[in-house]
Structure formats: structure tokens, C-alpha cells
Design a protein around this nucleic acid. Structure first.
Lengths: 154, 154
DNA sequence: ACATAAAAAGATAAAATAGTATTTTTTCAA
DNA sequence: TTGAAAAAATACTATTTTATCTTTTTATGT
């Protein structure tokens, strides 16, 4: 549903939202290491996002990527608009050309509410709010180096 | 989430479930036209499915693909097992390597119930039952030639 | 001014997915 | 028993996605 590019981009922006500021920037290398994603791949994505003003960046020594208050007013869809072309959630799960409420595919009534829920979040919830929710919920952008000590895998 | 190959395969099998029998077979060409999918592509997929005994086929004149009572006892996951490699629904929506209930990604609690619902259907509902449901619900495998007469597009 | 750190830009390569074409084999029916 | 219809098998091409590498530009601290 989401391409790797989108997943990487979203996680990176949310990472910046949680950790960066005008005086606390992060290089592509740092982000790549932190989120365990390919350096050059994420670098290009971050550049696209910066160019489109979804995030901010400065060149040179002590430069890097960061988010401003204004950046945080964006939502996840703003990211997807840059990375993907066309609506990611538009196409029918079963591949029917004109699947919709009136002429549904066999799983339309299962897929449709899910799409709405995720779209609601991505479209109407600011990056700032999304980021805050992540903290409150205790969910993760990266599991790097985290050992939850579940003895299921010795 | 599903590849085009999977979507084509599922729709084709459900089409056969609804329309075919031991004495009513369909050639790849017919199915391709009916479901508006590429002929040679679906032909290859149908061959794979027939080889794996998910559907049946006979060569020669009056031959074609069809489903037997036994075939209909399969479920959609049997199709996916042939076409895709690895679990289609396993990977995390956000791309976290070990996302799960204990260490969730930021959208885990939205995605998880959806995956369970669709997996329940694909895993535990027979093709026969799926097909029956399609008839009862009035949902579609193809919208070819169907004009719903909504005046939104004149 | 100069060396350096970092982003920006561009070129290219590898892999996966999607789709096409051709040939061979099987089977039915005349 | 032979011709044709259809699946089966094989080989190939194209496109998209993913990933890497190289060079250029910009800003900063000394």
C-alpha cells in the first residue's frame, strides 16, 4: 500500500518532529542509522521534502535537517503528496477499476472503513499532533537496539 | 499490499467459482476479456494455479479452466501461497522490522484489526462460501460493460 | 581566505514486477 | 488419423521501484 520510500519518509519526518529543532539538526547519516534505513535513499527523500518545504534544512558544517513550528503544522498526506504520485489509498484492494460504495468489490466493506480511518489520521492530524500521540501511546518509530526481553526467542 | 498478480488470480478463481463447472469451462482468453486483465499474464497465473491443484483444467478443444467441488473447498490464502512468496499481511504498515502488539508502530492499532479481518476471510472462508457471499451481497468481480447510470460523468 | 562538513544534484545500477511473444504438447472431433 | 483448439512451457522485453555512487554547491568556523 505504502512504498518503502513513503514509509521511510514518514518515519524520518516524525523522528525530526520528536527530536529536532532550529538548533538541533540531524544529518541524513544520523537519521539513516537511527531508523535503520539506507543512507542514500533517505537522503534523497529528505532533499525532496526540504525542497517542498515539508521539512527544513541548512547546508554546510553544523547543517542538517530539522522541523520548525510551521513544518509541524503539515500532515502526513503532505509527505505522501511529495513522495508518491496520485492517491495511495484510491485504488481498489481487489483491482476493480471503478470500485466504490455503489459497485463494491467483494472486500470493499472491510477495506473501506480502514482506508477512511488511516486517511483521517494522515489528512487531518498535524505532524505535531501525530508526534505527540506517539509519545503518549508509547509507540515506536524505530526498534533499533531495543530489547524487549521476550523469552520467546532465546 | 496485494500485487496485481494476486488481484488477477483471486478475481479469476472467484469468477470460475461463480460460473464454471466440469462441463462449463473457460479459456484464458474468455477470462481475460471478462475481467479486463492482460491475457498472457493471467494465462500464466492460471497455469500455476492449475498445476498446484487450486483450480482444474483440461487441454484441447472444449478445454479450459474450471473449478470442481473439491477446488471450491480451498480458500483465498491457497491462491496467495502460489502467487506471492511469503505472508502478504505480515510486514508492518510503517515498515518497522519487529512491529507487534508489544512494540507497536504509530498506526498499529488501526492496521491490526483490518489485517485480522481480511485474513480471517482469506484464511478461513472457503472459495465456495466467498463466492456465495458475493452473490448475496451483490458485489462485483468485474465492472466490464456495467453502466450504473450515475449522471456525474456525462 | 581557506578547509571542511554537510546538503543538493545528477548519473547509474540492480532488483522486482508487469507484461508479451513464441513454441510445444495434449486432446477432442470430424 | 489428422487438423485445430486450448493449455503448458519457455523465453524474452519493458517498466517501475529501490538503491548506490559521484560530483557540485553552500555555509561555517578558524
Amino acid at each position: 500500500m505504502l512504498s518503502n520510500a513513503s514509509k521511510y519518509a514518514i518515519r524520518s519526518v516524525l523522528f525530526l518532529a520528536e527530536n529536532s529543532s532550529r538548533i538541533q539538526k540531524f544529518g541524513a547519516k544520523h537519521i539513516a542509522t537511527e531508523l535503520e534505513i539506507p543512507l542514500h535513499f533517505i537522503a534523497k527523500l529528505l532533499q525532496q521534502l526540504a525542497k517542498a518545504k515539508v521539512i527544513s534544512s541548512t547546508k554546510g558544517p553544523r547543517g542538517g535537517f530539522f522541523t520548525t513550528e510551521k513544518d509541524l503544522k503539515n500532515n502526513v498526506c503532505a509527505i505522501l503528496d511529495i513522495i508518491e504520485m496520485g492517491d495511495v489509498f484510491e485504488p481498489c484492494f481487489m483491482g476493480l477499476p471503478r470500485c466504490g460504495d455503489e459497485n463494491p468489490c467483494p472486500v470493499h466493506h472491510i477495506v473501506s472503513p480502514f482506508k477512511e480511518a488511516i486517511l483521517e489520521k494522515f489528512k487531518h492530524q498535524s505532524i505535531a499532533a501525530f508526534s505527540k500521540e506517539i509519545e503518549e501511546e508509547g509507540s515506536y518509530l524505530s526498534l533499533k537496539g531495543i530489547d524487549f526481553g521476550n523469552n520467546s526467542n532465546p
